[in-house]
């Protein structure tokens, strides 16, 4: 019986699974769109995984990350819950132990992680604005009627990129429309957009940080070759896009889960049966005080698995098995 470890990254846009062997090799990776239904997507992904998994493999540990990490942990019976920043750093270090900078651009947030001698020394995450993340590129590709996977190739055809105002997504869009109406070619506009996003990223997140190579570029947006080229031009150095760039968070948390389980000796994983369970979430307003917190409750077969959303802990702390959120 071969042991393997599962990492699940449920983000705003995509849900990713990575199955890791005992020797830290990626056996399977699954990339699905979350489409606003985190539980159903996790179940779907596990279903796919079950069909692909050779019969002699057993899942010995599960970790979850991403914005739905606590929810996922409750649903699958996870062994560890890790924030995205640490998970991405662990994965990048696994790919290249010398890495100094990790650029990660996902669906709705972007991060920069600075490392030295194999440990994280500094990080930043976008705070006030989501301009320049995957969702915005998605939206623009949609508007231009280009499939998102072709956006990078089209950007590379550009000969003289147009300068697009990139500080704000809304202004970037109106600037793009303006440039389109002026008659600039699509590749020049698309690559101009990539450059604007890179400028915005470096101004917002890279400010005051020493960006040294090797630089790893990961997250869904790393699929866009135009973005990679724009980063290389702006930083004047090579930017590495790893093979599993779009599932790095899941890879990282699988590595962490392995470590946790080896120390702990057992797994909490409920097994593939959970694909068949009917998870119900409901939300209600607590009227205990004028905060009127919105409480989310997740139940399976009438058993409450978890509750969160309250500021005071009245609801979330009434459940023991749940790794409380705050």
């Amino acid at each position: 019986m071969e042991k393997c470890y599962l990492g699940i990254d449920v983000g705003s846009v995509s849900t990713n699974l990575v199955l890791l062997s005992e020797n830290d090799e990626v056996l399977e990776s699954i990339y699905l769109r979350t489409e606003g239904k985190p539980i159903a997507t996790v179940q779907k992904a596990l279903n796919i995984l079950q069909q692909r998994l050779p019969s002699n493999y057993r899942i010995k540990g599960v970790g979850s990350t991403g914005s739905a990490r606590y929810l996922t942990n409750v649903v699958v019976g996870g062994d560890c819950v890790k924030n995205e920043i640490t998970a991405h750093a662990v994965a990048a270090l696994h790919i290249n132990p010398q890495v100094r900078t990790v650029i990660e651009i996902g669906g709705q947030d972007s991060k920069i992680i600075i490392l030295q001698d194999g440990i994280v020394t500094d990080f930043a995450m976008n705070t006030v604005c989501a301009a320049g993340t995957g969702s915005f590129l998605d939206q623009q590709a949609n508007r231009l009627n280009i499939p998102i996977q072709d956006l990078g190739e089209i950007a590379l055809q550009s000969t003289s990129p147009v300068r697009i105002a990139g500080r704000c997504a809304v202004f970037a869009e109106s600037d793009m429309i303006h440039k389109q109406q002026m008659g600039y070619s699509i590749p020049d506009i698309v690559y101009g957009l990539c450059q604007a996003l890179v400028r915005n990223y470096l101004n917002n997140l890279g400010k005051g940080k020493d960006i040294n190579s090797p630089i790893i570029f990961q997250g869904g947006v790393a699929a866009n070759k135009g973005m990679k080229k724009a980063f290389e031009e702006a930083l004047k150095t090579e930017v590495i896009v790893p093979k599993y760039y779009n599932v790095m968070g899941a890879l990282g948390v699988a590595l962490i889960a392995k470590e946790v389980v080896v120390k702990k000796g057992y797994t909490n994983f409920y097994g593939f049966n959970i694909c068949n369970y009917d998870y119900k979430t409901k939300s209600f307003n607590c009227n205990g005080c004028p905060n009127i917190c919105k409480i989310v409750e997740i139940t399976v077969e009438k058993e409450v698995l978890g509750r969160w959303g309250d500021r005071c802990g009245k609801w979330s702390q009434s459940i023991k098995r749940f790794d409380k959120l705050a």
Partner: peptide, 10 residues
């Protein structure tokens, strides 16, 4: 919370 957790890890 994400930032604080990452900071503790760091």
């Amino acid at each position: 919370i994400t930032r604080l957790e990452a900071f503790i890890d760091l």
